[in-house]
Design a binder for these strands. Structure first.
Length: 601
RNA sequence: GGAGCCGUGGUGUAGUGGCCUAACAUGCCUGCCUGUCACGCAGGAGAUCGCGAGUUCGACUCUCGUCGGCUCCGCCA
């Protein structure tokens, strides 16, 4: 059924055969991409990770029953072929194929392995359900577009490693079994066999270890680290993902940003030939939220959000004025040339705004003759209306949208509306790579659920020096030395300067309402390390999966992860997670309390 | 925890209460074919319409539940 490879040493990859090889005898191996049987002559496109080459089986050339064997070849059979390279006959070159000027005339064929008929074609742009692709991921990876993602990923990892090594960083591996810290994301837990009833956690990030490495004097650390968070999935979120993690001692914020943006520019040039102009723009969190309604703005297009609170405060429109009286905001944006939107289209946008908490979406249509159409007209004087239109630079044919609510709701609703309009109006240049830093994040955000301030980044983030006096008196105004790096509206990295001064850290815990026992049991080992001489330090973590997704022009990080999980965190190929033997559980001192029996699908 | 979309031969779709004994494309199988490259031509096989219950004289079609996939909200310090 299948032949040995003995004596068939591969000469090169299929996709590398060229006119320079004409006259040479080659041994090629690979998968049967397609077979075209013309009765008297058989063409086989042989494929490997570098591409395709056409192999010709001519009964006058292949003897020993091998032509008959070639007739049995089917798609995805694994073959070894010995044959001579020759130019394609006059007029039969294939300009769509890299190797299309040549073909390999076979005189020996081995079928190394047959294949079942695959459930989908091995080619780009297949329209097949993702669950089928994931179940047969090994076939999916044979498709050039997924293969290219993994190839790019390998290249990126190498470039990153070289860059940091050249900049005097040490690559240090930190544990995958570590202490659980219930702060932040949910931990994946790992039971200890040797210590009954105790658990390790998988790292959400190497955060604490890398800070301790600074205490240890490593000075400049990086690692390409696998991280784990047991939270719900999204197109750009997997339960295990990869971070480029780095930390530096004796630096200020600018040193870190400069080094990292230098790495980004180098990486984009080397990996995909894109020039990233430096320095990257820097936007304060406040400004990003005001203008783009997002802390990760997509700056590939305008359509900015505009304040109108001052223009509507004296109107008769209660929905606006009452929000303003309660400390909320009223803002708007101009959907250029969209006055033709139907009632239905406007309702759809209203629903979108509602997802983010907006109670309504007000609008003013500017007719071609310059007259206004809006449910708001009767609540505003002509002068008030004119002022609003002027502020939003409204012109005939435009439609102006408004949301009134708390600062965060207005930002979220209009921010998403802006993205939606940018997309549907085709304002986004898909070939652009727009990086920017978002800086000056608030130190705290108020948690309605917990009725207290919580750390926006994490509790070791250093506030700005000038805000230190307000840590306890007015936490809401304290800004952090924290920063995110954003690419095309996606947060691809984030970091901060850390607190290295004991009294600042103590005040921070106090501001967060954490007791001494609580901090000691959660972060005791870090705080203890800090008793032994801690350098000022800071760092950043890059989401490698997201970065590669954007570099490769994909819509989901699943495409750049070899074996990703579905939205319900399952691996459809291996069917993990799964039941385990009772015996395994006993060894781990685990009793499963209740498990709903899954119905037969 | 919540919202929305989807599930019909291997794959992608059509069919939205009786016209379905389920259609189309592609793939698959058989035969023919010496220059194709999404080869072509002829013939053939292949689906109890994700699963379960209900409504109905009658369900692929309607209702409820459930399983699975995707997108989003919450969540992700």
């Amino acid at each position: 059924m299948s032949d040995s490879i003995q004596g068939m040493k591969r000469s090169c990859y299929c996709g590398q055969v060229s006119l320079a090889d004409v006259g040479r005898e080659l041994v090629l191996t690979g998968w049967t991409h397609r077979r075209r049987d013309h009765g008297g002559v058989i063409f086989v496109d042989l494929r490997d990770r570098e591409g395709l080459v056409q192999v010709v089986f001519d009964p006058a050339v292949v003897g020993g029953g091998m032509f008959e064997k070639a007739e049995t070849i089917r798609n995805e059979y694994v073959l070894a072929v010995r044959g001579k390279v020759r130019p394609r006959p006059e007029g039969s070159a294939n300009p769509n194929l890299k190797t299309g000027a040549v073909e390999v005339v076979a005189h020996e064929l081995r079928v190394l392995s047959p294949s079942k008929t695959p459930p989908f074609y091995i080619e780009d742009g297949v329209d097949v359900d993702e669950s089928i692709r994931l179940k047969y991921r090994y076939l999916d990876i044979r498709r050039p577009e997924i293969l290219q993602c993994l190839t790019l990923r390998s290249k990126v990892n190498k470039i990153i490693r070289d860059y940091f090594v050249e900049h005097d960083f040490l690559e240090v591996e930190t544990p995958t079994l570590m202490k659980s810290s219930p702060e932040g994301a949910r931990d994946f837990l790992v039971p200890s066999r040797l210590r009954a009833g105790e658990f390790f956690a998988l790292p959400q990030s190497p955060q604490i270890y890398k800070q301790i490495l600074m205490v240890a004097g490593i000075d400049r650390y990086f690692q390409i680290a696998r991280c784990f968070r047991d939270e719900d999935l999204r197109a750009d979120r997997q339960p295990e993902f990869t971070q480029l993690d780095l930390e530096m001692s004796f630096v200020e914020q600018d040193d870190i940003l400069t080094l990292v943006e230098g790495m980004v520019a180098h990486l984009f040039k080397e990996a995909i030939g894109v020039d990233v102009p430096l320095p990257l723009p820097r936007l304060s969190w406040q400004e990003a939220m005001e203008r783009y309604g997002s802390d990760k703005p997509d700056t590939r297009f305008g359509l900015e959000i505009v304040e109108v609170g001052d223009l509507v405060k004296d109107s008769q429109f209660k929905a606006f004025t009452s929000v303003l009286e309660n400390g909320g905001r009223v803002k708007g944006l101009n959907a250029r040339g969209c006055a033709h939107f139907s009632r239905r289209e406007i309702d759809e946008l209203g629903k979108l705004a509602a997802v983010y908490g907006a109670k309504g979406l007000a609008y003013i249509t500017i007719n071609e003759d310059g007259s206004l159409k809006s449910p708001l007209l009767k609540f505003f004087t002509e002068e008030q209306m004119a002022a609003i239109v002027r502020r939003l630079e409204g012109r005939p044919g435009d439609i102006l949208f408004f949301v009134a609510d708390t600062f965060l709701v207005v930002a979220a609703a209009l921010g998403k509306l802006r993205l939606k309009l940018g997309e549907t109006l085709g304002l986004i240049d898909e070939n652009k790579f727009n990086f920017l830093w978002v800086v000056d994040f608030p130190q705290f955000e108020y948690s309605e659920e917990e009725k207290r301030y919580v750390a926006m980044h994490h509790p070791f983030t250093m506030p700005r020096e000038e805000d230190l006096p307000y840590l306890l008196t007015d936490p809401g105004r304290v800004l952090a030395q924290a920063y995110d790096i954003v690419l095309n509206g996606v947060e691809v990295g984030g970091g901060s300067l850390r607190i290295h001064r004991k009294e600042v850290q103590e005040n921070m815990f106090r501001a967060l309402g954490l007791t001494e026992e609580a901090t000691r049991s959660k972060f005791g080992y870090l705080l203890e390390a800090f008793e032994y001489g801690v350098p000022p330090h800071g760092g950043l973590a890059f989401g490698i999966d997201r970065l590669i997704m954007l570099m490769a022009g994909r819509d989901t990080i699943r495409d750049v992860i070899a074996f990703p999980k579905t939205q319900s965190a399952m691996d459809l190929m291996s069917q993990a997670p799964s039941d385990v033997d009772q015996r395994q559980l006993q060894e781990l001192h685990i009793a499963v309390v209740a498990k709903e029996k899954k119905g037969e699908a």
